[in-house]
């Protein structure tokens, strides 16, 4: 469904993503792995349509990223990005106004499960709560491609479990999830496919189970091997 061909992004001469070639197919959960600054976020933003590639192309269902792909792709950034005036209910209304695939019922369900209160101001949420809100809003869309940038960053264990469960529940044969993280062990058991990035380059990619079998080591160990 998603194809990056030599996708490159340079900022003022500095290369953030360097000739990235990647294909994402439905029915799979992908881990996008690498330390901070390896280009994971820039790559995701290119797919989300927030960053325009300097060179190369990114296509979704054969069409370059644009309005059509934005209908089908859900992106969740690391940082909170909702308007200051909003409370949790307003966030749901906003999504419902702009995304046809958004389910208000699912949002209400997830908000309740995450122990959030609809009248709470987005501005006053703790970082853990803000992370849970972002996940709830993003996964209440029945998007075909779901991009989650560091969904487990700075979150306590309980919230992590809730988020992992919600991610697993959202995966099905008709969609694909791409989850970036530098906390590999959290993702090890939920992924089908691992993509390793380093300094804007793709260093290794493959089926997680096959990689484990071929190399006789877990993705976590492989990660340590690559980046140590």
């Amino acid at each position: 469904m998603l194809e990056c061909k030599d996708a490159t992004k340079k900022y003022m001469g500095k290369v953030a993503v360097d000739r990235m070639n990647l294909t994402v197919e439905k029915g799979r959960i992908y881990a996008l792995l690498g330390p901070n600054g390896s280009g994971k976020t820039t790559l995701m933003k290119m797919v989300a349509g927030l960053v325009k590639p300097t060179e190369g192309v990114v296509t979704y269902n054969k069409i370059p990223i644009g309005i059509e792909s934005k209908r089908k792709v859900a992106y969740m950034s690391t940082e909170p990005f909702y308007y200051n005036y909003m409370n949790i209910a307003d966030v749901g209304k906003y999504y419902a106004d702009f995304f046809e695939d958004f389910s208000t019922e699912k949002y209400a369900q997830l908000i309740e499960r995450m122990n959030l209160r609809t009248q709470d101001k987005v501005k006053s949420l703790s970082s853990g709560m803000a992370a849970k809100l972002k996940i709830a809003a993003t996964l209440s869309r029945k998007a075909e491609l779901i991009l989650l940038d560091e969904p487990l960053n700075g979150i306590d264990i309980i919230a992590r479990e809730q988020i992992i469960t919600t991610i697993v529940e959202s995966a099905n044969d008709e969609n694909a999830l791409v989850v970036s993280s530098h906390l590999v062990d959290e993702l090890e058991k939920i992924i089908d496919y691992a993509v390793f990035m380093k300094e804007g380059n793709l260093v290794m990619q493959g089926d997680a189970e096959e990689m484990r079998a071929e190399r006789g080591m877990s993705i976590v160990e492989l990660y340590k091997r690559i980046y140590a």
């Binding site: 989300a48 349509g49 927030l50 644009g66 309005i67 059509e68 934005k70 209908r71 992106y75 950034s77 940082e79 909170p80 990005f81 909702y82 308007y83 906003y94 702009f98 995304f99």
Partner: peptide
């Protein structure tokens, strides 16, 4: 600011 995502993630030109 990050608030820009609100507008530019929507399927609007």
């Amino acid at each position: 600011t990050k608030q820009s995502y609100m507008l530019f993630l929507t399927p609007k030109s």
